[in-house]
Design a protein around this nucleic acid. Structure first.
Length: 483
RNA sequence: GGCGCCGUAGCCAAGUGGUAAGGCCGCAGACUGCAAAUCUGCCAUUCAUCGGUUCGAUUCCGAUCGGCGCCUCCA
């Protein structure tokens, strides 16, 4: 049983149903990081969007085969990893230095992902580009054989003129293109300024691999085509990335893959928007450039960041702000408090006027429908979250007047689990207190019974300082939560 | 020059040809020994501006203003 999901397709510029080639199994390729530095919050927005995409399909009943590449050979990686090496360093040393750098930042990347609740284990394939040189070379040879690639002085280029559909993704027509305004001097040998490089010839000071065209290294588009086709197949359901990748990266991937196979490679292209920071483009010079680590140092919970990102639609520019983060934290707190309330069994006071009594089970079923209707419609998370919040509000009101039954509470909890499986913001938390704190809570209870308010308040403040917030209930029990 | 996107309350934000979801913040009240949590009420006669189409537009069309992206490395 799978729910149909509709997504905006960059190819058609319309929202379309996603119909996997194999019913119930979704093949998903997402462009991963270039590991030469820590990921910044803009990068993370894209990975969070892709995680949302994946989790939505999973919870909608699909088996998702997700491949994300790790780009571990690229201009900036080479620049940063080779600068300390002597001029005469041999190729093995150069490769070693490059690997040392990329290993370090690959690990940092996965640490960051884990912090925002994107488990490494949730990826089916995490290929490193440097592990797929044979596949890249084979793909280039395949293009050569079809007349779509040509070698010049040790480099190989893609012949755009040979592929009529070039430009279909970015919706560029060749007449209107302003191309070639900035051209590297060493690439004058291309037949056309639009042709892009598949294989770069060796330059002194760079690591290299042997190839039929002599030593060199892969161009930056070829890895995704080679690894995607190797691991997921020559036809895949969804390919995604940040909007900036539409052109030229994804356009060139289409050229490489479809040029080689002669048929459609990707059915659905999905792209996530960028973020702004306090209304401005994030940049190091403006001083508004943040990594997740920067936020953590400011005491911000990465899960709060995750929620802030996911509470906005993925195709809209998101204006990151610290005020927004505060709002996200408070909104999450409301949901977590509600969860605790549903996990508990305490009696409500009863009585009081309210709009109308409702049938909690039916109300929950309605919320579930609303939630999925929103998510299925191009991942409309703002509306999906609204479905949760209105339910929370209704059930709180109901529970205040006439306590929900255990069955109804469990139904609410099941819905929270279901939605948390996607948003990862309101998980069940084991309630455990150390003996000292438990004793303090008991001492305060005794003080309250004795109407010793000064002592009772003192203990409450003391616990608050330790990060334990108390909630006195109407039935005399005392709840607590961590601040 | 070509192709696109966005402009909804203090902030974030959904949305539809039929009269504005949700969250945060804020205010008043209830509950409480006081709090916290929760509840009740309030918080955009209005959706950048000006025209047009329509019985009716925030939603369609056009123009204007403002912000932005891509066509070159970039999540």
């Amino acid at each position: 049983m799978t729910r149909p999901i509709h997504l905006f397709n960059t190819l058609s510029r319309r929202v379309e149903a996603v119909e996997p080639l194999t019913p119930g199994v979704l093949t998903l390729y997402t462009c991963g990081p270039t590991v030469y530095n820590f990921a910044h919050i803009g990068n993370l927005r894209t990975f969070l969007f892709q995680d949302l995409l994946k989790r939505t399909f999973q919870r909608a009943g699909y088996e998702v085969r997700h491949c994300m590449n790790i780009t571990d050979v690229e201009d900036k990686i080479i620049r940063d990893s080779q600068k300390e090496l002597p001029e005469g360093a041999d190729n093995g040393t150069r490769h070693g230095a490059m690997k040392a750098l990329t290993d370090r930042y690959t690990q940092a990347f996965f640490d960051d992902l884990e912090a925002v609740a994107i488990p490494q284990a949730s990826f089916t394939f995490l290929p490193r580009a440097t592990d797929y040189l044979p596949q890249m070379i084979a793909l280039i040879q395949r293009l050569e054989a079809k007349g779509l690639a040509y070698a010049r002085e040790g480099s190989v280029y893609y012949r755009i003129a040979g592929l009529p559909q070039y430009g279909c993704l970015a919706h560029l027509d060749r007449e209107g293109m302003q191309v070639g305004t900035s051209v590297d001097a060493d690439e004058y040998e291309r037949e056309s300024l639009s042709d892009f490089v598949l294989w770069k010839t060796f330059k002194p000071g760079e690591p290299s691999w042997a190839s039929p065209w002599g030593p060199g290294r892969p161009g930056w588009h070829i890895e995704c085509s080679a690894m995607g086709m190797e691991l997921l197949g020559e036809r895949i359901d969804i390919h995604s990335g940040g909007v900036d990748l539409v052109f030229p990266h994804h356009e060139n991937e289409i050229a490489q893959s479809e040029g080689a196979t002669g048929h459609t490679w990707v059915n659905h292209w999905v792209h996530g928007e960028f973020l702004l920071v306090e209304g401005e483009k994030m940049s190091k010079s403006l001083g508004n450039f943040y990594t997740l680590r920067d936020l953590q140092e400011k005491g911000i919970d990465p899960i709060t960041f995750r929620y802030a990102i996911q509470s906005n639609h993925y195709r809209k520019l998101y204006n990151f702000s610290f005020e927004g983060l505060t709002g996200a934290r408070n909104a999450l707190e409301r949901l977590r408090t509600f969860r605790k309330r549903m996990e508990g069994n305490f009696e409500s006071a009863g009585g009081g006027e309210w709009k109308e009594a409702l049938d909690p089970l039916r109300r929950i079923a309605q919320a579930r429908e609303d939630f999925w209707t929103a998510l299925s419609d191009d991942l409309n998370t703002p509306e999906a979250l609204a479905a949760i919040f209105t339910l929370v509000s209704d059930l709180n009101a109901q529970d205040d007047r006439a306590a929900l039954t255990r069955e109804e509470r469990d139904a609410a909890l099941a819905f929270l689990d279901e939605t948390n499986a996607i948003f990862a913001g309101w998980p069940h938390e084991e309630a455990s207190l150390d003996a000292e704190v438990a004793a303090l809570i008991e001492a305060r209870k005794a003080a309250k019974v004795a109407k010793n308010w000064a002592e009772s308040d003192r203990i409450r403040d003391q616990l608050k300082a330790q990060g334990i917030l108390l909630e006195d209930r109407k039935d005399g029990s005392v709840g607590w939560k961590k601040a």
